[in-house]
Design a protein around this nucleic acid. Structure first.
Lengths: 213, 213
DNA sequence: ATGTCGGCATGACGAGCGTCATGTCAAACG
DNA sequence: CGTTTGACATGACGCTCGTCATGCCGACAT
């Protein structure tokens, strides 16, 4: 049998995995302590050996959910240009597969409207994760931006990334909130088309828009 | 004193107003029966003279919240063209005033991610309201669309309205979910700029894009 | 005037939740 | 080898919520 700290770390990981999954499928307060601990093969009493209260759990689970997905989503083909990256992200995000698998999906879309009503402490966590995801989206591309900011990110690209995130989060959320499958698919398609138009404005001919030669 | 049916109608209206406000500020399950009835100056027992259960209340309150705002948002200046309408809606929606007053704001943004996890019955209500709002957005403009659908709506405009709604809902939700005021304002501004770009693609010169002469 | 109806108040029940006190047992340590 | 530590189980407490049974009392019909 493993050592003590190893067993505790393993327990904590099971708790975080279970909580992250429940947070994305059932929402912020759907990740009830009793249910999370049951998923983690523990009893509810053991919870307070890992966290002081539920707020700490939700914050940690939210961070955990996003940390697991960030690199998986951000890394694209090498030599990727900016408009390509934006359209690729939207094309992958606004998809029936992502819509139908919230347990492994984007945590922003899962808890966005609940986070808006959460105490300031959680909103700070939300904001920090969002900024980190935006920086990951704006991360190094094949063609570095023409006017990089002192801190390394082109503010124009940063704003485009914000709009893309809002469009994607709103898109899957609306697609999940409607009943009819056709309506849902149309929401995804319309947002995907809009994202492509946003990333690659019609008639634009600057170097960043053209494909790699 | 008023007649009996009038008093009941007045009570129902107070209940719906209170529930609609709580639904937008506290979310779907934040509109608890006891609190709503207290806001409506009634006791919790009287609730079941108006609704069979809580599901009926939430559905009715959601419809009530949207019905109150739809015409207020949709009606714009006469002689309004399609791109102008889209930019006007985004400019008004993605605003600090709207962000900071959820009690009178858009119900879609308030409950979107919770609706995604709601039973099919509520999702049907959500879908019906969304379709109705989309048709209101696509409603008659100064320049009717070139290719109107048999049922009266240009499918291209309908898809643009979907994307605009997703961008707006995602935008205010993210703006509400972050703590820092500057970050929040930047989210609103970035989404507003993206909506304008979406409604009025750069370089386009067709008649619908030009201002009224 | 008298009886019926129904909106409303009061009170209670059970379920689910967060939280904590207490006990237990195996691993870590001197 | 004996002691201590701490992760975990058990059980309980208080709170909130949805739901319903019961009773009241004013408005309406006859």
């Amino acid at each position: 049998m493993a050592t003590r700290v190893e067993r505790k770390q393993a327990s904590l990981l099971r708790i975080l995995d279970a909580a992250a999954a429940r947070l994305r499928t059932e929402g912020l307060m759907g990740a009830a302590i009793g249910l999370v601990m049951r998923d983690a093969k523990l009893t509810h009493g053991a919870f307070y050996s890992h966290f002081a209260n539920k707020e700490e759990l939700t914050a940690a689970a939210f961070r955990h959910a996003l940390a697991n997905n960030r690199t998986r989503w951000t890394t694209g083909p090498s030599g990727e240009h900016w408009p390509q990256r934006l359209t690729r992200l939207a094309k992958r995000y606004l998809t029936p597969a992502h819509r139908d698998d919230p347990a492994n999906g984007c945590a922003f879309a899962a808890v966005a409207s609940e986070a808006a009503r959460s105490p300031a402490e959680f909103r700070r966590v939300f904001e920090a994760e969002m900024i980190q995801s935006l920086r990951a989206i704006c991360g190094p591309t094949a063609a570095p931006s023409a006017n990089p900011d002192p801190n390394g990110v082109d503010p124009t690209r940063h704003d485009e990334a914000i709009a893309l995130l809002a469009l994607c989060v709103g898109g899957v959320t609306l697609a999940r909130a409607v009943e009819d499958g056709e309506t849902s698919a149309r929401v995804l398609a319309a947002c995907q088309a809009a994202a492509a138009r946003l990333a690659n404005p019609e008639g634009a001919t600057d170097s960043a828009t053209r494909a790699v030669d």
